[in-house]
Design a protein around this nucleic acid. Structure first.
Lengths: 212, 212
DNA sequence: ATCCTAATGCAACTGTTGTCGCATTTATGG
DNA sequence: CCATAAATGCGACAACAGTTGCATTAGGAT
């Protein structure tokens, strides 16, 4: 009952057309990326429509719809292309200091103008692609922050054998996200430090220790 | 330079037409509210459009657009009308227990089906009215939670003269919101308890004490 | 050079969103 | 009961989002 073995290629499925990411395709992508950023700066998130991006980039509407599907896809692609910067967490010499500096970066990102981060969060509620890209972004960021916890452990700031670094980082940053992204309350200059102090204090008391 | 005092009414602006919230208006409002809920149950948030709600309620499209403006306005009105339930925070006998129970309610609300809470959060990024309604809702909830902190203080669980109850409550609940509403990660059954324990621990160490 | 076809351009089309002017209904005050 | 106008119903419309079929351009392999 075996189908005859094909001579050179998979027979049943369309044989995966050879991609062609050369000159023009890359140029179009760069044009669209630039247009997304410019459009965000010029008109804000409400003005970020596929049509506006296409018009600004000079690329045809249909092409943008075909390659990026919707605004969420556009933002996801821009975010992915910007994710491989050499970002590293701050290193101030103490856990609380590191977390405070980290929280200040988070607060700055959430309140910057144009509101790229807020635009992406908003888009993540409408586009699965944007939600996935945002999840990847945060996962990458939290992974890069692991050294903050490792350094604290090496300094003896953390009790127990091991610490759940992700839980600690989420506990430290979550209040900032909650206030700015969900409650939409005005930025509190003291919040980054107090949230960091709270998390560092709890971590010092073993709140994030793992049994292993 | 004082303008002459009007005899009976404000002269310059259109004299605030007498509202007429009587029979039909109230009936229409009830019909639309019911339709919003039914539509959410039937089609989820993606299917919650003004047209769908209008069709389901039997009220004309134009009327819904005029009175509620958009989906955010619909959800905001439904939320406001449901906000005066007699909700009270849990009372388990300890700060950590209260916060754990509270966090479990938050987690249940964010993961319930139909996803009313998530729909409102999503809408709050597109509609100022929904954002304002959500802010009012959370403000009300946090205000009602003040007794949780007061009881803990009365039991001697909190050091210092006074505690910033809002900051404590935000610190306790923020990780749950962050994971479920922003990171969109699967629900972690242990998170409500660990976040509550973390916050209670930090509170016991004086992290939320206010100088006054 | 030349062939193949992926990628793009183009125009027309459908369906949805939101608005506007006007007719009709019906609270509400007298 | 009557008069007024707020609230709603109704249809047409403009603007936008997104799709489809086909023509054209240009990357990449031979």
């Amino acid at each position: 009952m075996e189908p005859p073995a094909p001579s050179t290629d998979m027979p049943q499925d369309p044989p995966a057309p050879r991609r062609r990411p050369g000159g023009r395709t890359a140029r179009v992508r760069a044009l669209v990326h630039g247009a997304v950023r410019e459009q965000l700066v010029a008109e804000g998130y409400d003005g970020l429509t596929v049509d506006a991006v296409a018009a600004r980039s000079g690329v045809h509407r249909t092409t943008v719809y075909r390659r990026w599907r919707d605004v969420g896809g556009l933002l996801a692609d821009v975010l992915d292309s910007a994710a491989d910067d050499g970002w590293a967490p701050p290193d101030t010499g103490s856990l609380e200091g590191d977390l405070t500096a980290l929280n200040e970066e988070v607060a700055a990102g959430l309140t910057e103008d144009p509101p790229i981060a807020m635009a992406l969060i908003a888009a993540s509620f409408r586009s699965p692609e944007a939600a996935e890209a945002l999840r990847r972004f945060w996962d990458d960021r939290y992974r890069r922050c692991a050294p903050v916890v490792e350094r604290a452990a090496a300094r003896g700031e953390l009790p127990g054998a091991a610490t759940d670094d992700r839980a600690l980082l989420v506990a430290a940053t979550a209040p900032v996200y909650h206030r700015l992204a969900l409650l939409r309350a005005p930025a509190d200059p003291a919040l980054p430090a107090t949230a960091a102090r709270t998390a560092a204090l709890a971590a010092g008391a073993g709140a994030f220790a793992v049994p292993g």
